[in-house]
Write a protein that binds this DNA or RNA. Structure first.
Lengths: 119, 119
DNA sequence: TTAATATATGAGCAGATATTCAGATAAAGA
DNA sequence: TCTTTATCTGAATATCTGCTCATATATTAA
């Protein structure tokens, strides 16, 4: 006869202290959420291509669309997302908006991950 | 009379060289895909919590489930994903599998991103 | 003001994904 | 061998997300 659900294993008793410590040093809920948002922004091939291109030169929406073979609308949607997370900034020159990376954290993240992939 | 679609702006002609250079220095398709996979792995609050906990101590599936308030099944699914990307490894002690981070790239990524969020 | 250009935005759909549920494996001990 | 424990896995589902389409906004030039 089964007395407990299969989802309650003995480790929960044996490792009680481990779990308590892990919970005590866990990320704050808002930190976890913000981290996930940033990584979500990097978790898409289109946005990665955009960011990698901007890491090397500023480009307008139209340039990015041409480079990626996508509509300018699609690119603009992605740029808004990146803008909201302050990963990219822009400057206006007449009707044209030139986008660039806001800081060098993004390129650091991409480079470290490329390093990880090469191991 | 409109001669070109709205999706073909003059920038494509004016900035032709910019676009060509961007395409020449673009990430290889397989690099882009692999990068996106890694960032996708980090782009989920559950997996972030798992990785942050493992950065500080090894833990078994059961511990992680208790810590996160999730079923062991859900945790196991996520660990498989992280294992497939070689972000975590495990050692067996009897019936218990203890998980840990495979290398320190993940904690670097999380720390850089936390830094970005603090600016 | 009017027209043209570059970009932004909202709605909607197709495809991706995190969790749950039910059941399957693998190691240890009786 | 049989049972128990810890973990794994496939299928199903509800939610999320990237793109397209149509339209709106903002800047410039006529």
């Amino acid at each position: 006869m089964v007395e407990q659900s299969r989802d309650l294993c003995d480790c929960r008793l044996i490792h009680r202290r481990t779990v308590e410590k892990a919970m005590a040093s866990a990320l704050a809920p808002n930190e976890t959420e913000s981290l996930a948002q940033i990584f979500k922004a990097l978790a898409d091939e289109t946005r990665l291509k955009i960011l990698w291109a901007l890491e090397q030169r500023e480009m307008c929406v139209c340039d990015l669309a041409a480079m990626l073979g996508l509509t300018e609308s699609a690119v603009s949607h992605q740029l808004r997302l990146l803008r909201n997370l302050q990963l990219v900034s822009n400057r206006r020159d007449g009707v044209v908006l030139y986008y660039r990376l806001s800081d060098n954290h993004v390129s650091q993240l991409i480079k470290i991950t490329l390093e990880h992939l090469r191991d």
